[in-house]
């Protein structure tokens, strides 16, 4: 090793420049489609068919009016919320209830049941599609959100994570002293355990919400009224509505994408921190 301090510093600096350039270019590749989407949403279809634009135009409202005249984009937004809110609340509540039950009580078949529930994570949701359709039809809930919401609440990952979190973060002594004072088991869960699980629940709520918000195939199968479709189905059908009015389509896509970007930049620390929850620890 004959490298002196200065040349080592130079190579360190050179490495930094190379890596930052690489990362910068990749960041551009990640952002440019969304940037172009917003710019294009402000130009007319005719203008778009003749060139590239780097600056916003003044056709946004015009495109927007075309869009809402012919599509149900805001209905889609409301429909998605109508599905995602109860699913998220339900997945978190039952995930916590079940995870706590597994974590703090001994009963026959506990391990078999726990690993059985865990095993259902591997079942691809599409495998049950035909049966789910017929089940919903039999119950008379086709074209309603029940067939999406009820299976959505059953979230084995939430059970798994909340059991692990309860194992490590809820002291037994708290429950014991509450029991001494004559607290019922369900009340202990609701007024002592649930508040302590909040940080874990917040992370799970975000992922559960994103997953159900972005779901496409299940509503596509179970819903058959255009006005009732959630946002991903509305967006997927935008170019069926008009083949050519791309300005309006860009507006529609923008409406579906920008709120997610905004929420992501508010919650990014928690989201990225939560990603490694599901991964196996080396």
């Amino acid at each position: 090793m004959h490298t002196g301090t200065t040349s080592m510093q130079t190579s360190e600096a050179l490495k930094k420049v190379v890596v930052f350039t690489l990362f910068g270019l990749t960041a551009v590749v990640c952002i440019v489609p969304f940037f172009t989407m917003i710019i294009n949403a402000t130009h007319s279809a005719r203008a778009l068919s003749s060139g590239v634009y780097l600056l916003p135009g003044d056709m946004f409202m015009e495109n927007y009016r075309t869009l809402i005249r012919r599509t149900y984009i805001w209905h889609g937004f409301m429909n998605s919320a109508t599905i995602a809110v109860p699913v998220t609340v339900g997945a978190c509540y039952f995930g916590a209830l079940t995870g706590y039950g597994f974590s703090r009580f001994r009963f026959k078949g506990r391990n078999i049941l726990f690993y059985g529930i865990l095993g259902t994570i591997m079942i691809p949701p599409q495998a049950a599609l035909v049966g789910l359709f017929e089940f919903a039809r039999g119950l008379g809930v086709l074209d309603t959100y029940w067939g999406i919401i009820l299976p959505g609440i059953v979230n084995p990952q939430a059970v798994f994570w909340l059991r692990m979190y309860t194992d490590s973060a809820i002291p037994y002594s708290l429950m014991e002293s509450a029991r001494m004072e004559g607290c019922g088991e369900l009340r202990i869960f609701h007024s002592i355990v649930l508040p302590l699980l909040k940080p874990a629940i917040a992370t799970i709520a975000i992922f559960s919400f994103v997953q159900i918000w972005n779901n496409y195939i299940i509503p596509l199968v179970l819903i058959n009224t255009r006005r009732k479709y959630p946002l991903p189905v509305q967006i997927a059908q935008l170019d069926d509505v008009w083949q050519q009015d791309y300005g309006a389509i860009y507006v529609g896509v923008t409406i579906s994408v920008v709120p997610i970007i905004i929420v992501f930049f508010i919650l990014s620390k928690r989201i990225i921190g939560g990603l490694t929850l599901g991964a196996i620890k080396g």
Partner: peptide, 17 residues
């Protein structure tokens, strides 16, 4: 955050785009 961003966006929106 930037590298992860596309993962959160609805797949049908990205495909339409």
């Amino acid at each position: 955050a930037v590298f992860y961003l596309p993962n959160l966006i609805t797949a049908t929106s990205i495909a339409t785009l």
